[in-house]
Amino acid sequence: MAIMYALKSSDNEIFEVEQKVIEQSETIKKMIEDGAATGEIPLQVSSKTLAKVLEWCKQRQHKTVENENDDNKGKRKKERDEDDDIKEWENKFSDELKADKDVLFDLLLASNYLDLPALLSFLCQLVADMVAGKMPEEIRRMFNIENDFTPEEEKAITAEHGWAFQP
């Protein structure tokens, strides 16, 4: 029987999760090891974000378990199929986040807070892909970044770093 833990979101929703799934979070793993995880574990993460985090963790967990259960027969083909499945799942996950950037940033902060290095890297890569190849004005528009340079400052910085903008 798998050991279950109850996670409490910042808006007081309870999530029952298997230990193996949630131990991917270094933060929670340490809490469990410290014996600080009796009863509900209160987290500074909203229920909407936490649900997304757990979606990721379960997918990762699923992947590891399947690999452990594999025997050698036909393993390479199976791995290939699995890789395709994971890619497909990740693409869908990415598309949802790109469509709702608030969820994306909530998730970035949560992965940092919960210390989930794989998720954090995945999300940083996702944001980098969104930025890549864009002009500054396009990036500002995409993320609502306000250009707070005075015209003089902007001129100075473009002059100073102009080499980075040249093709």
């Binding site: 940033f105 940092n112 954090l120 940083c124 944001v127 930025v131 500054p136 970044i145 770093h161 903008f165």
Partner: peptide
């Protein structure tokens, strides 16, 4: 994005070619 901690932003920039990372200096 601008209110993310520095460490996360530089993590994001680390996935870009350095030229593109430097170009973000003009954003704000």
């Amino acid at each position: 994005i601008s209110s993310l901690p520095d460490a996360i932003i530089s993590h994001i920039l680390s996935f870009l070619p350095t030229k593109a990372a430097v170009a973000t200096s003009v954003l704000s």
